[in-house]
Amino acid sequence: MVDWDLAVSTAATLTGGGPRVSVTEAADVVLELRRLTDVAEQHVANYTGLSARVDHPPVQVVDRTDWVRTNVEGLQVVMDPVIEKLQAASPPKPTAFGPVGTAVKVVGQKATGVQVGTILGFFSSKVLGQYEVFSGAPGRLLLVAPNVVEIERKLGVDPTDFRLWVCLHEVTHRTQFTAVPWLRDHFLSEVSAFVDATDLDPEALADRVRNGISALADSVRNPDSKASVLDLVQTPAQRAVVDRLTALMTLVEGHAEFVMDGVGPDVVPTVESIRARFNQRRAARNPLDKLVRRLLGIEVKMRQYAEGRKFVAEVVERVGMGGFNLIWTSPETLPRPGEIADPDAWVARVVGPTVSPN
């Protein structure tokens, strides 16, 4: 269904190589990002009270195309079960036009490969780092060196401070998924639940596509619309899973945002300036870029950063970091969708009324 090799080559063509750097500069960036990842790990452990319970592979400092390849590997892990379901639900029928059917299949694979590559190409020039969990346990920490250099130059910030700031965020994600032994399996089980909830009925799928296209068209006309490409595929059962996944991702993203700023000016002396300029750049994107981000659901992720950080900050203020860390006890202690906007409800349910801040 997807020509994955074409997806990678399409993304590589669209994304470009990034900012100009000499061979020596590039090597220095890679070495410093690796060093700062180790520095960040200890700061994150001290600040959060969490430490990895497993040995994790070293950070991978990658370029944009390598980031695409890694994510294609992860997408294949997610998509293979969906493809198997589709093939089981719609087995090929014998026809006198067998060669034509094969040609149509190949064209479809190519078209989908280009579409996937276009989306990955867009992301590959934006993302600074990622903790990739799909390809194998315990996961892989990726830092996209060209994007880090490009953004630090555009912001005009201290390179070492900015690189450490980025490392703090991504290392927090690695810490979450390696210090909390059940978190990765829980996340993957929710993704599997989303796949299992896929409705393969052709008429139902056609209705969702029509409704999704209408929603996307409305989003183009109406800047306040919140429609995204996800609206094309979600069944009611999938929306329930998405609500839970959104709450989980809002927590982990907000926790990382809270940590990267909370570690403090003693570690990242220019952190306040970096945060202010970074947020200003986020808000100043051109209208076309904002539209693309909304259609791809990236604006939802941006809201997750803000809403999750507010949730974490308010819980820590009420019950301290020790009380907050009860959130990692089990899937039942994760915030429910409605509790992200109501930290007191989570505190009352999980921590109880007798715990005081540390």
Rank of each mutant, 00 (worst) to 15 (best):
T329Y: 07
Q280V: 06
V263Q: 08
S356Q: 14
K310V: 09
N286V: 09
A283H: 10
N71A: 00
R153L: 06
V171N: 05
T37V: 10
M260C: 05
K301L: 14
V29K: 03
T329C: 05
H169W: 10
T250E: 03
H169P: 01
G338K: 11
T24V: 13
V292F: 13
W346Y: 07
G262F: 11
E132L: 11
M302D: 12
E314T: 13
T354N: 14
V100F: 11
I327T: 05
W165V: 02
T102L: 15
T48I: 08
L216G: 08
C167A: 15
V8T: 09
R140D: 00
N71S: 03
V259K: 07
T246W: 05
V149H: 03
V44M: 04
V312H: 10
G212S: 05
L296V: 04
L31Q: 12
R239V: 10
M1E: 04
D161N: 14
W182Q: 05
W328E: 02
R53S: 11
W165F: 09
T270S: 15
D185W: 10
R336N: 12
R244M: 00
K110Q: 14
T270R: 02
R285A: 14
S9W: 00
V268Y: 03
P81R: 06
A88V: 13
G297V: 00
E253K: 01
V127T: 11
V316Q: 03
A227Q: 03
N211A: 15
L216M: 08
A227S: 07
D38T: 13
G320T: 04
E203R: 15
N279T: 09
V319Y: 06
T198I: 12
G98R: 11
H56A: 15
N358F: 15
K110R: 13
E332L: 06
V350H: 05
Q234K: 14
V100L: 13
P99T: 03
Q87C: 11
P223H: 05
W182I: 00
T102V: 13
V114H: 09
L216K: 00
V259A: 11
F123Q: 10
V229M: 14
S9I: 00
V59P: 12
L200T: 13
G121H: 01
G322D: 09
L188T: 04
D289M: 09
A137S: 12
P81W: 07
S273H: 07
Q176P: 06
L288Y: 14
L251W: 03
P353T: 06
A12D: 01
M249E: 08
E73Y: 06
G320F: 02
T37Q: 07
L128K: 09
D218E: 15
R20Y: 15
L248C: 06
N71C: 03
L14D: 02
A217H: 14
V268E: 03
D344L: 05
L245R: 04
R277K: 15
P287I: 01
A137W: 08
E170P: 03
T48N: 04
A89T: 06
V39K: 14
G16S: 05
R208F: 13
D63F: 02
